[in-house]
């Protein structure tokens, strides 16, 4: 973008190597995902220290622009930024000029002019992160855009799965629920298939896309949960939004949970060491049984912990940090 350009239409994220933005995982290859996971593991080492902090982003400013409600993602990005010693500013829609109708384009330009090096964007519209990325010289990280993508969630899910199994390739992964409206599912489909997992999506036909995303490697579609779950290594339950009922896509919560709830009885059909994931926030008793959510198979709290490490890795790599392998100090980090 040149300074006097009146505006820019959305752009594609730059190719691997010079990546400036993280918009989705659909343009990541396996090596780049490995690089992010390895860097996240290094960050996790830092988080385990007595003083869990590194000065990698000293002097950098991160704005968390969250125009949709969020707890875990926003807090996770905030902690990640602070662990890297960045200046972190949090901004939500309410109480800002966004509420007065300021456009996203003007908002991100204003934030950059005020000194933001990285804008972490959560937004209710698909493609919002692409739009924002076109307007700035710095980096944009997609923290969830509409129904489209949530790449840091997918990365932390991949890390959690790899922690449990040592690999992702060849694992049988089942994603259950409202895939049609889930940015988490969409980003995971790209991440999991790129890493070589064998993926099944499962849910009622009203909540699955009629056709899967163009360009996606083969994914199995199954409407019967018991069949889908047979022999699964990983089962990921998605949050069910209550407005799906009013839209006529579901008769009732009761029926949905009878057909698609993840619970211990159903998991008997999976592999004995099956891992249960949920991106949160959970509707316990609906898409996932309370005992299962907090039981031995659940990695849901590990997901949250890994979220901070993954977001540290993303912030580090996008701002020019070099990739690191497990146990090695990130570039620019000094013992504090």
């Amino acid at each position: 973008m040149t300074r006097n350009a009146p505006f820019q239409w959305p752009i594609r994220s730059s190719s691997s190597g010079g990546r400036r933005h993280l918009l989705d995982l659909d343009d990541f290859d396996r090596a780049e995902i490995e690089q992010y996971l390895a860097t996240a593991e290094a960050m996790r080492e830092i988080l385990r220290r007595a003083t869990p902090k590194t000065p990698a982003l000293t002097g950098r400013t991160i704005v968390n622009l969250f125009l949709e409600d969020s707890t875990r993602t926003r807090v996770s990005f905030e902690i990640a930024g602070k662990r890297l010693n960045a200046d972190v500013v949090n901004m939500t829609g309410s109480g800002s000029s966004v509420q007065k109708g300021e456009s996203l384009v003007n908002t991100v330009r204003t934030l950059e002019a005020a000194g933001a090096d990285v804008i972490v964007l959560r937004h209710p519209a698909s493609g919002a992160a692409h739009l924002a990325a076109a307007q700035v010289h710095g980096s944009v990280i997609n923290a969830g855009d509409g129904l489209h993508a949530h790449p840091t969630q997918a990365l932390l899910d991949l890390l959690t799965i790899r922690d449990a199994f040592g690999t992702i390739a060849e694992l049988r992964v089942v994603i259950v629920g409202d895939v049609l409206h889930s940015r988490v599912a969409r980003s995971n489909l790209w991440g999991l298939t790129t890493m070589g997992a064998d993926v099944t999506v499962c849910g009622p036909p009203t909540l699955l896309p009629r056709e899967l995303p163009i360009g996606l490697p083969p994914v199995r579609v199954e409407h019967h949960l018991d069949r889908a779950i047979e022999g699964a290594d990983v089962v990921m339950a998605l949050r069910l939004q209550r407005e799906r009922m009013t839209a006529g896509r579901l008769p009732s919560l009761r029926e949905y949970s009878r057909l698609y709830q993840i619970n211990d009885a159903r998991l008997e059909r999976a592999r004995p060491n099956v891992l249960v994931l949920h991106p949160g926030p959970m509707n316990e008793g609906i898409e996932i049984d309370t005992a299962t959510a907090h039981g031995r198979r659940s990695a849901i709290e590990d997901q949250v912990t890994n979220g901070v490490a993954v977001r540290m890795a993303v912030l580090h790599l996008l701002t020019g940090g070099s990739a690191v392998s497990n146990g090695v100090e990130p570039a620019g980090a000094r013992r504090g």
């Binding site: 698909s126 493609g127 129904l147 969409r186 009629r210 056709e211 995303p213 163009i214 360009g215």
Partner: peptide, 15 residues
């Protein structure tokens, strides 16, 4: 348009 492109972009489909 409802189809594999809208599915990829997370845009609601017009069938």
């Amino acid at each position: 348009n409802e189809g594999p492109v809208a599915a990829r972009l997370g845009l609601r489909g017009w069938p």
